[in-house]
């Protein structure tokens, strides 16, 4: 493994990841010794990561490397085979309060309006009606869907559907937002718009975000740190600090550092991506 990369890149091995965390924020999520097996197939193993308070961490890797599986394990939707995930100190064994997820497939219910979809989590958590009435329009407005409260998902474009999915998650006012390739099913232009809008929303309401994507560009643009998963079974190959100036906006894309990090991640992943493409 070539380790000639610039000083902003440092390879993580074993456990001690939080020691050199420059944000030095209190730990929100701690993953230790995490592994997942499906029968004989080991998807990933020995993953140790910590995510700080209000940090955006993106996870990239070739398809099939288990990045989405890892995210589902963090949410507690599926159990780990080895190791554990702790959020705010307590181990995860199922979806919990304070953690919300945004899905690649949007996961909107076609029989519910935008309003009802956004209110879904709040209703299930038995929030008082008055509170729901106040919060839902606020979050609908925050994601730019005002005026579409009574629309059904079939009446919305893909981008608008994901805005609705995002509002549903944000309405839970989570400390941790898990994003599972949220913009993968959205067209390229809409995707760019949504990326910047998400960054703006994060500026307003900074929360810990774990953002899984297969777009290297997206990973570098959004992430304060980029976690690169690689190998069979996959593990954490590198954790890259992306020291780009805040706030991130369109100008970030032209920053020389952005190009530098993007190229670095690309060259790291290229061999693996090639291999994955030709493997059936």
């Amino acid at each position: 493994m070539s380790q000639a990369a610039s000083n902003l890149v440092h390879t993580v091995s074993g456990t001690g990841t939080s020691a050199d965390d420059p944000s030095s924020a209190p730990t929100r999520i701690a993953i230790s010794g995490a592994g997942k097996k499906y029968g004989e197939l080991q998807v990933f193993k020995d993953i140790n990561l910590t995510f700080g308070n209000g940090e955006i961490v993106t996870v990239v890797g070739p398809s099939g490397c288990g990045k989405t599986t890892l995210l589902r394990c963090i949410d507690g939707l599926i159990p780990l085979s080895e190791g554990e995930v702790k959020i705010e100190g307590s181990p995860i064994n199922g979806p919990r309060e304070g953690v919300a997820m945004v899905f690649q497939h949007f996961g909107l219910f076609p029989w519910k309006t935008v309003y009802q979809n956004v209110a879904y989590g709040l209703k299930l958590a038995r929030h008082p009606a008055a509170e729901i009435k106040e919060k839902v329009p606020y979050f609908i407005n925050l994601v730019g869907l005002s005026g579409f409260e009574t629309a059904f998902p079939y009446q919305l474009s893909g981008g608008m559907q994901q805005r609705c999915g995002l509002a549903r998650a944000l309405a839970m006012e989570p400390h941790v937002l898990l994003m599972d390739e949220p913009f993968a099913a959205v067209d390229a232009q809409t995707r760019e718009i949504l990326q910047f809008e998400l960054l703006k929303i994060w500026e307003l309401r900074p929360l810990t975000m774990v953002f899984v994507t297969h777009s290297i560009e997206e990973a570098v643009l959004m992430g304060h740190r980029v976690v690169v998963l690689k190998g069979r079974p996959s593990g954490v190959h590198e954790v890259i600090d992306v020291d780009l100036p805040a706030p991130r906006d369109r100008g970030t894309l032209g920053h020389p550092r952005f190009t530098e990090v993007r190229e670095h991640v690309w060259s790291t992943l290229m061999d693996e991506v090639r291999a994955a493409e030709f493997e059936v």
Partner: peptide
């Protein structure tokens, strides 16, 4: 299965 996954992620009870 996506609907069931979302329901679980938002901690829906069996009845819901």
């Amino acid at each position: 299965p996506e609907y069931l996954e979302v329901a679980r992620a938002y901690r829906a009870r069996q009845r819901d």
